[in-house]
Design a protein around this nucleic acid. Structure first.
Lengths: 187, 187
DNA sequence: ACCTGAACACCGTTCAAGT
DNA sequence: ACCTGAACACCGTTCAAGT
């Protein structure tokens, strides 16, 4: 297993990036949080690109695990679908943060390619999981399921963004309810 | 009327902020675009906060005018509702940019208060306009209209964000169609 | 193996001073 | 009124040196 420091850097970097983005991420603050000097970070991650890509990779890996924990085939697909927005809700609860993928999507033009690639995996994983759940929970065709999956993913990300802008998780809850009323998410 | 330089700065700043955010907005590049030195910008806008707030204010003012141009009472509410996503589509067409409000919502923690306030006006204006259009175009109750208006606004913003992350306007169109299929937007 | 002080080149921001 | 030079603060990065 890796050293604690390396893990601590990644954890702090993920939290910082979910609040300030890739551009807003800076080695000196990060180092202070971890309890080392900024120069020491470069021992674990040669460049900011390396750190960003590692954090983004870990982010989708963790997301994959969480989603598989909610549902990975079998019964309970409807409940899983209902629980999905909570995975986004948790970031808001945790210091009004947002999804790394959302923030970095906004930062698209300023993102190094390796980071971009890991970030796109997060979206793919969420859409793939939603597609599978929708296939199991509804009688929609596969193509319709994927289309709906993308719509749900984008809409939930948008709701999270709006909630952050008002620093109010209640906004998120109301928006998700709105999606259910409208039929985007099953009631 | 104000000087050309002041207007030029605001135009360039708005475009830059829609691509790089408030944090990514920088005086030196801005100045080069306008044809003055970076220090000269401070004559027109004492601080970055002043520039940001002025740009954000102008942004919702322009948005208000555009929306009122699409529909401001009278018939054609359904067509207006159908045309709404195009106001977001245009930013993507224009160099894969996104809504200033979306980018700055992500940047919430790093945003000075005056900028935050102007940005929140943009959301209010969009929601208010959508609420009025929905009231005219559907038979939903006023409360339901506002709730749906917020849902539409958040979802369209999310769709724009996802389209930018893939640098593909087609993604936006597909997502909007997905919203229509699901019933979030009227077909 | 892991960390640091000091320095480097760079860049956005500010302000006193120019015309 | 309008603009600028130059200093300032801060950034990612490097590297020789420390443990």
């Amino acid at each position: 297993m890796g050293s604690n420091v390396r893990e601590d850097i990644m954890t702090a970097a993920r939290r910082a990036a979910q609040a300030h983005g890739y551009t807003g991420l800076n080695f000196r603050e990060l180092a202070a949080e971890v309890g080392i000097k900024s120069a020491s970070i470069h021992y674990h991650f040669p460049t900011k690109v390396d750190l960003g890509a590692a954090v983004a990779k870990r982010y989708w890996e963790d997301s994959q695990a969480v989603l598989d924990g909610i549902w990975n085939g079998g019964p309970g697909a409807s409940q899983a679908l209902r629980a999905y927005p909570d995975t986004f809700r948790r970031s808001l609860e945790n210091g009004n943060r947002i999804c790394l993928c959302s923030f970095m999507s906004a930062e698209h033009d300023d993102l190094p390619d390796p980071v971009r690639q890991e970030i796109s995996r997060f979206a793919e994983i969420n859409v793939a999981w939603l597609t599978r759940v929708l296939s199991a929970a509804t009688d929609m065709e596969t193509g319709a399921c994927e289309r709906r999956a993308r719509a749900i993913f984008a809409a939930v990300a948008g709701a999270q963004l709006m909630a952050r802008s008002q620093a109010d998780v209640g906004v998120f809850d109301t928006l998700i309810e709105g999606y259910r009323d409208a039929g985007l998410l099953p009631a």
